[in-house]
Design a protein around this nucleic acid. Structure first.
Lengths: 141, 141
DNA sequence: GGATTACATTGACAGCCGTCAGTTCAATAG
DNA sequence: CTATTGAACTGACGGCTGTCAATGTAATCC
């Protein structure tokens, strides 16, 4: 049965003890997180990741007819993946006659890449778990 | 999955015309793509991305009870997301008494980060669509 | 014109994902 | 011991995803 935690003081914890120092959370992160998660979602499939990899490595515009035989997938499935990548803003396409050429949009992966790649190793080493202890950083690289 | 190149004159194209130069695809990419896609999948949700962000920024071990109020989600849902991050090998946890502390594992994001971050901004702007161009660099086996 | 080609779209299907209410479990407090 | 607390687990539900066969569409060739 549900417990009435409304009436009690919100943080009981152990008397005089805290689990860790409070975490503040900047609301600005939220929009950014949404955008980056959308990019990550588009890359969250091996086929799409390989597609982006091939397009990046060839650094030009690659025809769909060259992409299809790279996978054991039907043409509509590859087309579907390309569409998802385009909807995510990662790639774009251009038609020339019968053929469609895809390419990776510049800076499309920049935000996620920047977030993943911290510009500096300037993370403080405070251990928020035990405020009394003077430990720091248990994992070396 | 396998890169099975057809030997038959599969490519009709327009007579005497090619859509673009052939794309070779290193098979080694496949495993790597699978691993990186799994990491991307774990980050493909705003909540999980924010969780990782908070854990990274605090650079120590953060108690779950501090993570829960950051989101408008039930405790089981946050726990579920943390489990997915752990299963993906991105975070790990440690119990101390009643509390559980989560932290980002070192190097967990390294592979994806490296792939996203091109080692060099040396992308030429060769256009593979025009057969007249004289590029070479097709990375052989 | 009709036939062919390259690619996109549709519809259907199984499987996974995000969420919550409810429950369970382990550790602590009294 | 019992009561309480922090966190994980279970079951359920709607929605989304990856895949294919079939179809549609636009451009090209005869």
């Amino acid at each position: 049965m549900p417990v009435d935690l409304e009436l009690a003081p919100k943080q009981k914890h152990a008397p005089g003890t805290r689990c860790c120092e409070p975490v503040v959370y900047p609301d600005i992160e939220r929009q950014e997180a949404g955008r980056m998660a959308a990019i990550a979602k588009a890359l969250a499939d091996p086929v799409r990741l390989q597609l982006v990899d091939v397009l990046r490595k060839h650094a030009g515009k690659v025809c769909v007819c060259e992409l299809i035989p790279l996978f054991d997938l039907s043409q509509p499935t590859v087309s579907h993946h390309l569409k998802m990548l385009r909807n995510a803003g990662i790639v774009d396409s251009e038609r020339r006659g019968l053929w469609a050429y895809y390419y990776v949009k510049a800076n499309a992966l920049k935000e996620l890449s920047t977030w993943l790649n911290p510009p500096e190793e300037r993370y403080p080493t405070a251990d928020r778990a035990s405020p009394a202890s003077t430990r720091s950083r248990e994992e070396g690289t």
